[in-house]
């Protein structure tokens, strides 16, 4: 599989960052490119729901594994998936 061989192209995420994945469900064609290209198996196709064009769309099922490499965002033919940085409140300091 592609994802087993690939390594993230961007530097590893910093400890104080978490990511959220935004899927524009109506635009998503459900082509699975992002699912296959994700190096950390974050994404999967949601087989339980449909968008307005009666297509299954992608969802982030293991968001905690996301490293923010944005591979999914770049490979998506319609940019219907976006990786956004989420600032974590720094409570330790």
């Amino acid at each position: 599989m592609l994802n087993s061989k690939r390594t993230p192209m961007l530097e590893p995420p910093k400890a104080d960052k978490e990511y959220e994945i935004k899927v524009y469900t109506d635009i998503c064609d459900g082509c699975e490119l992002c699912v296959e290209f994700c190096p950390c198996n974050v994404l999967e196709i949601d087989m339980d729901s449909f968008n307005s064009r009666m297509l299954h769309y992608v969802k982030a099922s293991a968001l905690d594994k996301c490293t923010g490499c944005k591979q999914c965002e770049r490979i998506c033919p319609t940019v219907s998936i976006m990786v956004l940085e989420k600032e974590v409140p720094q409570e330790d300091k």
């Binding site: 635009i27 064609d29 459900g30 082509c31 699975e32 490119l33 297509l55 770049r74 490979i75 998506c76 033919p77 319609t78 940019v79």
Partner: peptide
């Protein structure tokens, strides 16, 4: 204009279009 994306789902033509636009 997403209404004119007539490509097969998974075709990398879309990726080329979005790469140029980005």
């Amino acid at each position: 204009n997403l209404n004119r994306f007539i490509f097969c789902p998974g075709c990398l033509i879309g990726t080329a279009i979005t790469s140029i636009t980005t």
